[in-house]
Amino acid sequence: MSILSKGYQARQDRRRYLERTLGTLAALGILYWLGINFAKSPSQFFQASLIGLSNGVLYALIALGYTLVYGIIELINFAHGDLFMLGTVFSANFISVWFGKTHTGIAAFGIFAACLVAVMTFGASINVGIERFAYRRLRRAPKLAPLITAVGMSFILQFVGLHWNGSGQKTWNSILPSGQIKIDNVTIPYTTIISVIITVPLLILMSWIVSRTRQGKAMRATAQDQDAARLMGINVNRTISFTFALGGALAGAAGLIFQQTRGLTSYNLGYQLGLIAFTSAVMGGIGNLQGAVLGALLIGLIQGLNDGLPIGLGQQWSQTVVFSILILLMAFKPTGLLGKTVTEKV
């Protein structure tokens, strides 16, 4: 109505126009870059996308653990990446030390399946234990207390990994078949196929549990209002434990897949992959499950294309590109890609 609000309106419009123009230009730039790369070498383009996406599903498994826990108790569980690291060390020991398997074969497949169950149980139990002993008492404490506890927990797990795995990187023989499929000039290793075959059903199962089951309903209610959930007869403590168990199991599975496809373990893996996975969760909108998967696939794809395309910045710029995109996205959409701000009337 007034001159003031008119001026405000005009400024808003101008800003929106500017943002839209810049966004369109950026999108065109990216499309052009993808286009010339595709024209130059289609096989390399597909190869890079494939590597990117197969990394992306692995990030997704870890990212879900961050987003599940944040969604339910608004805690950034810094120890989650290190739990993944313990999963890699556990898997390596389970397969190559305790069962002495270093080569592929029918028996090795059995051990691999057994290890998947074992490492998921392992991850779930440790995560539930961490919540029970370190985080539960701090639920009503100021936000900084559980946060610093989580940082401390991250160091504790890292030192466990340091003692268990040693201070250096260890390499292991994979018991997965080492061959590959070749379509034109695109090679798809069996390990990639196997890891996708394991990961995708896990992601679907997760989304089914949260959206369709009674336990999932309890999780969603607890995430929105703990006291109200209690008044519905929901056992809030058990629901939170269950959430940590789900996240831990996924981190365990990711540990096995990483260890068997990359063939290495190191006590500081949790820091590197944890950071990427956490970034995925934030990019997708933390607390949102689909968002975490979307963010993870995007980051995997961005890394894959950046590292693998003939005309590009190359691997040494990989992290810079990822985090530049994150910062840009945050500036314009602080809630992340699928994060929503719900209007709550009082």
Partner: peptide, 11 residues
């Protein structure tokens, strides 16, 4: 039925 309604807003 608690004070302040406390319904689940996103459901």
């Amino acid at each position: 039925s608690p004070e302040g309604r406390r319904i689940f807003p996103r459901m």
